[in-house]
Design a protein around this nucleic acid. Structure first.
Length: 575
DNA sequence: GCCGTTTTCGGCCCGACTGTTTTCAGTCG
């Protein structure tokens, strides 16, 4: 069974958990957690590099010891060190850490005193009233544990960025009406445009915290109050999403916005830079001794450590600080740079609108082109177009284009990639189109090698233009296909193809990491809505957010090209 | 466990809130 980077990361996380419960050196624990993150986000599969005779690249935070452990896991699938730890503590004990309020110290106490090893045993101990008797625990803690276990199954979910947006907007609007409130903005992973968010972090500036906190609690969507203080409160909305609200004075806005935007690793790195300069950085500002030297704006915070402002989407400590220092920050692509959309459905298959309605909407948005890409016949449930209907649609588009001003409809198809890698319509027909968007809609569970070859073979097709939703994942639903995305990206470069970043919030696929890989290989990415209704075009902002997380600039994105630039490069240059 | 034109040893980011405490450890973000 191939070992993926995610497997190595999971082992390191488990080691970190177990070490923490054993009260190991916290910095050693952090070393494992940092390494888990680094490996988990690394774009190339370590096991494949090693299997191919390559050497493990030097990665930040991974020294000789961790490198050896990575090699061991990548080649054997096991870690002797983890097995030693599991011999000392039950392997199930790490699941106790998922209960809010239970950290390593309390888990250790529960294990030592009550021999609690599983969530089941934890529930039984709580029901028997044995937890309240332990030092450092009490009745309230015991009750909270019991409730947390009951909520455990349904909770711990993450929300799509689209759903989170709705909850965030109305709560921010409520907070802005609060007493003395100057600003209320959403920070956290939401501001970093992560594809899902676990909770919302909202930053408020006001002269005084308590009145704002009182005002927050009057919000009628609140289902539960987890904590509330003078400047900070955590609540759960009726929808189940957790919201943390923090109030700071106006002069601390920039420092607090930076702080609450994160990510945590980015913040740690920035603080360290500050420390090297004799500065202390917290959510209230940048301090030299007692004196506050920056903090009103984010720019001032970055400037205090000698950096230009870094866009939130890059703040993952994945090289953005080094790039900023070197003056090499990317000019990230913006929504307004898009000149059109290359993946759109009409009424002819499973879309809602006519060609003319789609064209008018595209024109209204200031675009130059819109590719009509209905489904092919294999996707019968969508009323996919067969050869005859596709030819009729091509004629209709040509006629319509003669009457349209300032917008051009492109003749396309979203053709199914069949199980063997062939396409669902004849070459002679695909040849007549402006572009061929191809996608997998079936057999998602083929073995990795077979699935990868299937897609590579489809790309070999002379008229293949663009691979749509490359991994086939649906966030919170279907997992990504097991494919070698690195090979697919390299193959796209060799065959003159492009990759889609599908902007539907449940897809957002390519991922940020794969966008970076595509950029490194020089493969253009097309940010497409896959629209079925006119409102779906609004999803492009999420696609752009993901692209920005992947460091993409306008030049890296296919559909920032003007119509004139686009048409020739849609056709493969290969023979 | 990592890391270093200040260091190969001694550092490693910072503060709010809770519950159980009589001054703070643990947890969380």
């Amino acid at each position: 069974m191939p070992i993926h980077n995610a497997d190595i990361a999971a082992i390191f996380e488990e080691i970190a958990d177990l070490l923490e419960i054993q009260d190991a050196n916290p910095f050693r624990v952090r070393a494992y957690r940092n390494a888990a993150r680094t490996i988990g986000e690394y774009g190339r599969e370590v096991a494949e590099i090693l299997a191919g005779g390559g050497k493990l690249p030097k990665l930040p935070g991974i020294g000789a010891d961790l490198a050896a452990k990575i090699e061991e896991i990548a080649t054997t699938g096991r870690s002797r060190f983890l097995e030693e730890l599991r011999a000392q503590l039950p392997a199930t004990i790490t699941q106790l850490l998922s209960i809010p309020g239970l950290g390593p110290k309390r888990v250790k106490m529960l294990y030592d005193s009550l021999q609690v090893e599983t969530l089941d045993q934890l529930a039984k101990a709580a029901e028997a009233g044995r937890i309240r008797e332990l030092p450092g625990f009490g009745e309230k803690t015991e009750r909270a544990i019991l409730e947390a276990i009951r909520a455990h199954a349904s909770q711990s979910r993450r929300y799509s960025i689209a759903v989170a947006t709705q909850y965030a907007q109305s709560l921010v609007a409520h907070l802005r009406k609060g007493p003395g409130v100057r600003q209320a903005v959403v920070a956290g992973s939401f501001r970093r445009a992560k594809e899902t968010v676990g909770d919302l972090d909202i930053l408020v500036t006001a002269a005084s915290g308590p009145p704002v906190m009182t005002h927050l609690l009057a919000y009628d969507e609140i289902a539960d109050v987890l904590s509330h203080g003078e400047t900070r409160s955590s609540v759960v909305l009726k929808s189940g999403i957790q919201v943390d609200v923090r109030v700071v004075p106006e002069e601390s806005f920039g420092a607090a916005l930076h702080y609450f935007t994160g990510s945590k690793p980015h913040n740690i790195a920035i603080r360290k830079l500050g420390q090297e300069r004799g500065l202390k950085i917290n959510e209230y500002g940048v301090f030299r001794g007692e004196r506050r030297i920056a903090g009103e704006t984010e720019e001032s915070v970055f400037a205090a450590v000698g950096l230009p402002w870094i866009p939130p989407e890059l703040r993952e400590d994945r090289g953005e600080i080094e790039a900023a220092r070197a003056g090499h920050l990317p000019q990230l692509v913006e929504l307004k740079a898009l000149r059109g959309d290359l993946h759109v459905h009409s009424k002819a298959s499973d879309g809602r609108h006519t060609l003319r309605e789609l064209a008018e909407e595209a024109h209204r948005r200031g675009w130059q082109y819109l590719a009509i890409t209905d489904h092919s016949p294999r996707l019968a449930v969508t009323h996919g177009l067969d050869a005859k209907r596709l030819m009729q649609q091509m004629e209709e588009i040509e006629r319509l284009n003669e009457t349209l001003k300032g917008i051009r409809l492109l003749k396309g198809i979203e053709v199914d990639i069949l199980e063997d890698g062939s396409l669902d319509l004849a070459d002679s027909l695909l040849k007549e189109l402006d572009l061929v968007v191809a996608a997998v809609h079936s057999h998602f569970n083929l073995p990795r090698e077979q699935q990868t070859r299937r897609i590579l073979r489809a790309m070999d097709h002379p008229h293949f233009t663009l691979l749509a939703h490359p991994s086939g994942r649906e966030i919170g639903g279907r997992p990504p296909m097991d494919v070698d995305m690195e090979r697919i990206i390299r193959h796209a470069r060799e065959r003159g193809c492009y990759l889609e970043l599908n902007a539907q919030p449940e897809r957002l696929d390519l991922t940020d990491i794969h966008c970076q890989l595509a950029k490194a290989e020089g493969v253009l990415v097309s940010i497409n809505s896959d629209a079925h209704t006119l409102l779906d075009f609004d999803h492009l902002r999420f696609g752009v957010g993901q692209a920005r997380r992947g460091w993409l600039e306008a030049k890296d994105v296919l559909n920032t090209r003007s119509l004139k630039e686009l048409l020739p490069i849609l056709k493969k240059t290969m023979g």
